[in-house]
Design a protein around this nucleic acid. Sequence first.
DNA 1: TTTGTTTGTAAGTGTGCACTCACACACTTG
DNA 2: CAAGTGTGTGAGTGCACACTTACAAACAAA
Lengths: 180, 180
Amino acid sequence: MRSTAEARRVTVLNTAVSVFARAGFHATPVTAVAAAAGISEAYVFRLFAGKLGLFVAAAGACFDRIAEAIEAGAERATGDSPEEILDTMGGAYAELIADRDLLLFQVQAQAVTDIPEVAEAVRAGYRRVATFVQDRAGASDAQVQQFFAYGQLCHLIVTAGLEQVPEPWARALTAGIRHP
Amino acid sequence: MRSTAEARRVTVLNTAVSVFARAGFHATPVTAVAAAAGISEAYVFRLFAGKLGLFVAAAGACFDRIAEAIEAGAERATGDSPEEILDTMGGAYAELIADRDLLLFQVQAQAVTDIPEVAEAVRAGYRRVATFVQDRAGASDAQVQQFFAYGQLCHLIVTAGLEQVPEPWARALTAGIRHP
DNA sequence: TTTGTTTGTAAGTGTGCACTCACACACTTG
DNA sequence: CAAGTGTGTGAGTGCACACTTACAAACAAA
């Protein structure tokens, strides 16, 4: 017994987030995840209920990490106006997604929401994050909406590589966006 | 000769947008597009340079339709303040994506931007739409950015099915969004 | 009619991949 | 030590699907 199954599941999930992030659910063979995690394909199938079970569990892990980062970030807020707290949360999020994996995974998950289990996982993830933002920052509906709208804009900026585009329209879309 | 190849290409592209919109590039066999278009798989391969060529061409058709709708919508603006024109453009876009195909196709295209040809097609699409919005509405960078941020929020709302979620966080995210 | 061109297809071919199964090794308990 | 339990894999199996090829029918021009 080299490791417990539960510990394996955790490491596999983290690598799964990274690997699925690049090419998405359908274009990523589970051999790729297995190889990245350093175990055999067969064992991945023993640890999770099929490729779909693996992806859904990875989505859970992805949103867990996002929620934790935002929750931890909120603690660092200096003032307690909604604007200040939202700003600090945004900063924590920007910091977290610097490596792109969590952001790209979200995009990939949104793309396979035609699979009901994935749609539910995405809703569960945003439910957790959005309710926390709303409650903790004491923000209005409009502020919460704006927070997520600009978050989604980040997805476009990163997937389309707009930071690298010097034209005016691209500069307008990326203006003031943190980090990417 | 039942039809010219060029006419076929147009009809195939429109069906391709609809069919790819549902399950995305990798999960959609070209037989599905061929069947929906009423022709054989082999002929699709004769009309387009592989599955990727078909998808990239479909992306072009998708953004063409969006750009045309926004350009036509801008004509209907009553005033000429940036706010009014942006609002009218937003309305035209909301109207266009009522059938979801164009919106979902954009999401699917963003998910396969790891393929350089697709990334370039996405950039070309947003280049056309964003420059038009900026020039025609005479909007500031911040206004253009906001316009697209809330457009991207629509993608999340539709893919995650948030209109159907009665909880407060979902109501906050969907508040005031037109149509979906 | 014959020759050529374009539209269209049926029937493959090869490959990649999800998933299974029989088996082996590690470790524990009695 | 023997028997049991959990961890891990090699070697398949079967199917879906991207792409090709050989062939046919419609139309045009001579």
